[in-house]
Simulated scan of single mutants.
Amino acid sequence: MTTILDKILDAKKGQIQELLMNSIPEQTESSFRPSLFESLYQSERLQVISEIKRASPSKGLIAEGVKPAEQAIQYAEAGAACISVLTDTPFFQGTFDDLAEVARTVSIPILCKDFIIHPIQIDYAKHAGASVVLLIVAALEQEKLSTLYKYAISKGLEVLVEVHDSAELNRALQLDAKLIGVNNRDLRNFDVDLSRTAEIAAIFPFEEKRVLISESGIWNPNDATKVSSYGASGVLVGESLMRSGDVGNAIRSLQVKREVIIS
């Protein structure tokens, strides 16, 4: 049975061929951005990675006319720890231009949110101004995952490694990943369940100076408090912020005092 993730990855191969046909200008300098890991580790309040998200396969159009720079300013002013920018076009209507626009506008960490399966995507993310890239364990064989992880690190980028279950967590730990996100959304069918964070947190090696981020399905302070109690030090939030009429208040309402502080 073909899953949504399968369809996305098939389409991604075509996008990569287009990227390979274009040359990326050499960067003469890159803006300094704080470390996302350091901003999350031992934080007293739950930190928010705020996402710029135009659409999704499960919800269709979310914010078709969003202006990335304006949205990024609202996020940064509200105290977001990082801004995630979707750069997948076929399914999420994002672009590397969106990422570059955000990078020119704010100085906080910026995550390139995409289905990365080739080093050229990391090159484009870096050139557009990202300081963090996402690698999804479910999308990659271990050898390719390791190769891309090392490549991103060699480019001076932080890497958020996304997992869905215990087997994928073990694969992330083999990389010695410090930023690990648990996606509460099953990428095979896009169902959401916050208990995924609880399941991963129960076996997560917090004592090894790593941080756990809960991704997807966070809508309100109750959700934030729940994943914080499991041990998450950050949440990645997109749709609820994009639909919010008051971004600042929405972000601040999620910055709950952490119930579990990593020692």
Rank of each mutant, 00 (worst) to 15 (best):
I117G: 03
A63Q: 13
D114K: 10
T95G: 09
E70I: 12
S35E: 00
K12V: 11
P68V: 04
L99P: 03
S131T: 14
I24M: 08
I62A: 00
P119E: 01
I49A: 05
R104Y: 10
I108G: 00
Q42R: 12
R104E: 14
A76I: 04
L61I: 14
I24R: 09
I136H: 02
I120D: 06
F96C: 01
E38V: 06
D98M: 09
P90L: 14
E101K: 12
S131P: 10
A78G: 05
C82Q: 01
Q71T: 15
I122H: 00
K13N: 11
D88F: 10
L46N: 10
S56N: 10
G60V: 04
L61N: 13
S23L: 13
L134W: 11
Y41F: 12
E77M: 11
I117T: 15
P25F: 06
L135T: 02
F37R: 05
E64Y: 13
A125Q: 03
L86Y: 08
E26C: 13
G94H: 01
F96N: 04
D6K: 09
P90S: 10
S30Q: 14
D114S: 09
T87C: 09
S30M: 15
H127W: 15
Y41V: 05
L46G: 07
V85P: 05
I110R: 02
R54L: 01
A63C: 11
G129D: 08
S35G: 04
C82H: 03
L20Q: 15
K113P: 01
V102W: 07
Q42T: 14
F32Y: 15
T89C: 06
T87G: 06
R104D: 15
A81M: 03
S31F: 09
F96G: 04
E101M: 13
N22M: 13
F92K: 10
L134A: 02
A125I: 07
D123L: 10
E26Y: 13
L19N: 05
S84C: 02
K126W: 07
G94E: 03
S43V: 11
P57V: 00
G14C: 06
P57F: 00
I122L: 01
S43P: 14
V48K: 01
S131D: 08
S39P: 00
Q17R: 13
L20W: 07
I116F: 09
L99D: 09
E44Q: 14
T105H: 09
K7I: 06
K113C: 08
A11C: 11
D88Y: 02
I73C: 01
V106Q: 01
A100G: 06
I136G: 01
H118E: 13
G14T: 05
P68I: 04
T28S: 15
R104W: 10
A55C: 06
I73V: 14
R54T: 10
H118P: 04
A11P: 12
G129F: 07
K126S: 07
V48S: 07
A81T: 02
I62T: 03
Q27S: 14
